[in-house]
Measured scan of single mutants.
Amino acid sequence: GLTEEQKQEIREAFDLFDTDGSGTIDAKELKVAMRALGFEPKKEEIKKMISEIDKDGSGTIDFEEFLTMMTA
């Protein structure tokens, strides 16, 4: 499992990506986040990433899903 410290770091990354503070990361926010990390993702790639992570089919990534992605 994760230490509380690791969870906190992932939470901070999540909050950075969640620019509108909605508690979820949408495609637009993910794209901005990827760019910040030096990637140039295409729209299809973003969609694919979200569909792989987005277990509940909401079209957005919540913290639990993000946590799973970061620790996979």
Score class of each variant (00 low, 15 high):
M69G: 02
E45K: 08
M34D: 00
F17D: 00
D56Q: 07
E45V: 13
A27L: 14
L30G: 00
E64N: 11
G21Q: 06
E64T: 09
E12R: 15
F66K: 00
L2R: 04
L67M: 07
L16F: 11
I10E: 00
F39V: 07
D62F: 05
E4D: 11
T68V: 09
L16E: 04
D56E: 07
M49W: 09
A36V: 13
F66C: 01
D15W: 11
A72W: 15
E45Q: 09
A33R: 04
P41Y: 15
D20P: 01
T60V: 10
D56R: 11
L37N: 02
G1W: 13
E44S: 11
I25Q: 00
M70A: 03
A27T: 11
I61T: 00
T19S: 10
G1K: 10
E45I: 13
I46N: 01
D18A: 05
E44K: 07
L37T: 02
A27G: 04
E29W: 14
E52S: 13
E52Y: 14
A33F: 15
E52K: 13
R11D: 01
E12A: 14
I10T: 03
P41A: 13
E44L: 06
D18S: 04
D56C: 10
L37I: 05
I61C: 01
G23K: 03
G23S: 03
K42G: 13
T60H: 06
E5A: 13
L2W: 11
E12W: 15
D56V: 07
K42Q: 09
I50G: 03
K55D: 05
Q6F: 13
G57F: 13
L37Y: 04
S51A: 13
K28I: 07
F63M: 03
E9P: 04
M49K: 04
G59Y: 08
E44C: 14
K48V: 05
T24P: 01
T68Y: 12
E9Y: 14
S22C: 05
D54S: 12
A36Y: 14
Q8T: 08
D26K: 08
G59M: 08
M70N: 00
T71K: 09
T19K: 11
K31M: 15
G23C: 07
E5W: 12
A72Q: 10
D26V: 02
A13F: 14
I53E: 03
P41I: 15
K55G: 06
K48R: 11
M49H: 03
T19V: 08
F14V: 00
M70H: 02
E4N: 10
T71R: 08
D54W: 08
R35E: 09
E9F: 14
G23V: 01
D26Y: 09
E12K: 15
D15L: 13
V32R: 15
I53G: 06
L30S: 01
M49G: 03
F14Q: 00
Q8H: 10
P41L: 15
E5T: 10
A13W: 15
G57L: 08
T3Q: 03
E65I: 08
S58K: 12
S51E: 13
M49R: 05
M34Y: 05
E9N: 13
G57R: 06
G57Y: 07
I50H: 02
I61M: 04
L30T: 01
E52I: 11
K48L: 07
K7D: 02
L2Y: 11
E29H: 13
A72D: 06
Q6H: 09
F63Y: 05
G1F: 12
D20V: 04
K55R: 08
G23R: 03
D15F: 10
F39L: 08
T19L: 09
T60Y: 07
D20F: 05
I46Y: 06
F39K: 03
A36L: 14
F14L: 01
Q8P: 01
F66R: 00
L2E: 03
A72M: 14
A72V: 08
E12H: 13
Q6E: 08
E40G: 07
F14K: 00
L37F: 06
I10N: 01
Q6D: 06
K47T: 11
T3R: 05
G21W: 04
G57V: 05
L16Q: 07
G21Y: 05
I50Q: 03
G38N: 03
K7Y: 12
E4K: 10
I53M: 12
E44W: 10
G38I: 02
G1P: 08
M69Y: 15
L67P: 00
D18N: 04
F17L: 10
L30A: 03
K48Q: 10
D18G: 02
S58F: 07
T19Q: 08
K42W: 09
D18P: 01
K31A: 14
T3N: 06
Q6A: 07
E45L: 14
G38A: 02
M49A: 04
A36P: 01
A27C: 10
I50P: 01
K28T: 07
Q6K: 12
E45N: 08
R35L: 09
G59K: 08
G59W: 07
G57Q: 07
E44Y: 05
T3A: 05
T71W: 13
K42Y: 08
G23F: 03
E29V: 11
T19R: 12
S22G: 03
F39S: 02
E5H: 11
D62L: 05
K55W: 10
